[in-house]
């Protein structure tokens, strides 16, 4: 349960830092433009990440894979298929 919320909390914290905290430290003659850029960057990038994250939060359908793709996934990403039969792909 705890690990479920770590990723969105970390990413949201990063963008909140950039969009809310960093504008207070902007200096120089173009302070207003800098603040505007920081806030807009944080808002747009966070919103884009949020859309991408939420569409995968509760997927309606899964991917359709062939034998080769399944074997590659199993070998490269873990859960390697182990059986007594020797296979030459």
């Amino acid at each position: 349960m705890v690990s479920e919320w770590v990723a969105p909390i970390v990413i949201t914290s990063i963008w909140a830092f950039i969009g809310i905290i960093c504008p207070f430290f902007a200096r120089g003659p173009n302070r207003g433009v800098t603040q505007c850029c920081l806030m807009l960057t944080a808002a747009t990038c966070w919103l884009f990440w949020l859309c991408c994250y939420m569409t995968q939060l509760n997927p309606l359908i899964g991917p359709k894979l062939s034998m080769n793709e399944i074997m590659i996934m199993a070998r490269e990403w873990g859960n390697e298929i182990k059986d007594t039969m020797a296979v030459t792909v």
């Binding site: 997927p59 309606l60 359908i61 899964g62 991917p63 359709k64 894979l65 062939s66 034998m67 399944i70 074997m71 996934m73 199993a74 990403w77 873990g78 859960n79 298929i81 182990k82 059986d83 039969m85 296979v87």
Partner: peptide, 20 residues
């Protein structure tokens, strides 16, 4: 991820949609 055994996967015509 997928959790099939070797016998099931070895069919060359095998296509599967992972069940979400």
């Amino acid at each position: 991820s997928c959790r099939y055994n070797e016998t099931t996967v070895y069919d060359p015509a095998f296509h599967v949609t992972l069940d979400s």
